[in-house]
Nucleic acid binder design. Structure first.
Lengths: 231, 231
DNA sequence: CAGTGGTCTAGACCACCGG
DNA sequence: CGGTGGTCTAGACCACTGT
């Protein structure tokens, strides 16, 4: 033996067995204590290997029932959701920000339904444009629940975007994110420098703090944008 | 004391301190041994809390340098990438599959570049349509490297789609996924029952097995599709 | 060099839940 | 009920890396 058995080795070996059909989809893996004996290591080591395989979606674990190989490899993709500023600056471009609109109003019905806001809730509504070297990069349509973040009324958002302010100032506990493709309307076409009807990659994010709505944002990306990940 | 200190409690408390500004962005957290003393628990418990905070992108850890609060909370979103069949059936609809095209040819240049294929590589090219209750749901444009998966030539893919066959039969080690918005061309418009130029949510996935290209697929979703996640 | 995180061990208790 | 995973403890060694 060159040294101790590591949880990475165990994880790799178990993955190999799954790929090689030793443990086919749906199969029950040996219990942790049995694997300990096989690998000659402490249970905590086997536990960590199995826990990570579970987090990776390769196996499912249940007390008493044991650990099974997932039938549909529910592959999980992870995407980093960076701040626009970081994303643009990392590409080597100069980040520019413009506030296009700032208004306080009563939450429209669709927003109240989307976030579970009470009737007659006041919200801060912003339109922002993020550019990379003068080229439009992302249009931000932002709604912030004033009741949840009272001091937001005192911020003008002229110099920096609401995203940076929010991540620095306002915590949240629940998030909902969705990605879709939408056609550019007249306003979006103008701001993002595309033709009306052009397909735009769109991200929507809603956040809550302990069940209380904080903010909703729709981000429309300039033509050609793609969200990528690799592992 | 109601019981032992759990890593969840520690995690929650540390998150609270970060949100409350006790540890502002960029700040150095106490070393694990110090936190052990504070919380009155074993170092392994503190370690797990900090490790998860690190996996969540809240803090960054470096040997000797210590643990710091990330300046830009690089939020990581996780998306389950289910099989089309599962996704459709979970919605309560009946899953239907149709093979539209099956051909063997030399890999076109763009595909060779995309996957790093050798010149004159033979590939299996498929067009498939996945429907939910007869309504078109997803158009699949699939390319499979025959050299990497020789027995694929013997499968006709009339009854079941290549996705299900591949996940069951062919392992892979590297994946690249990207999401974007694309305009429907004439063929897509016909198959997905939309107008040419309409925005379509598009996913592309390329996989390799130990550096060797296995398959590339472009999935075009019917109008209105959105990829969602919540946590 | 010395401090910090990364990991393993051997043992323990217990919540959960299937049979 | 009893087996399985979930978690904590107390201690140890070591890899890495900033100073």
């Amino acid at each position: 033996m060159a040294g101790q058995t590591t949880y990475r080795e165990i994880k790799r070996e178990l993955l190999r067995r799954i790929h090689d059909g030793v443990y086919p989809p749906g199969a029950l893996l040996p219990a942790e204590t049995d694997l300990c004996a096989d690998f000659g290591c402490a249970r905590a080591t086997v536990n960590r290997a199995l826990r990570e395989l579970s987090e990776d979606g390769i196996v499912a674990r249940k007390r008493k029932a044991g650990t099974r190989v997932n039938r549909s490899p529910v592959r999980e993709a992870r995407f980093r959701i960076p701040l626009v500023r970081d994303e643009i600056e990392r590409s080597g471009a100069v980040y520019r920000y413009t506030l296009l609109k700032r208004e306080v109003l009563e939450a429209p019905d669709w927003l109240r339904a989307r976030l579970g806001l009470e009737a007659a809730s006041r919200v801060l509504h912003l339109h922002c444009l993020h550019r990379a070297d003068d080229a439009p990069f992302q249009f931000e349509d932002r709604w912030i629940a004033i009741a949840a973040v009272p001091r937001v009324e005192g911020v003008d958002f002229v110099e920096a975007g609401p995203n940076e302010w929010l991540v620095a100032e306002v915590p949240f506990t629940e998030v909902e994110i969705s990605f879709s493709a939408r056609a550019a309307d007249a306003a979006l076409a103008r701001f993002l420098d595309v033709s009306p009807g052009d397909p735009l990659f769109t991200a929507e994010r809603a956040t809550w703090l302990s069940g209380r709505a904080v903010t909703f944002v729709r981000l429309s990306f300039a033509a050609g944008y793609a969200l990528r990940t690799r592992y």
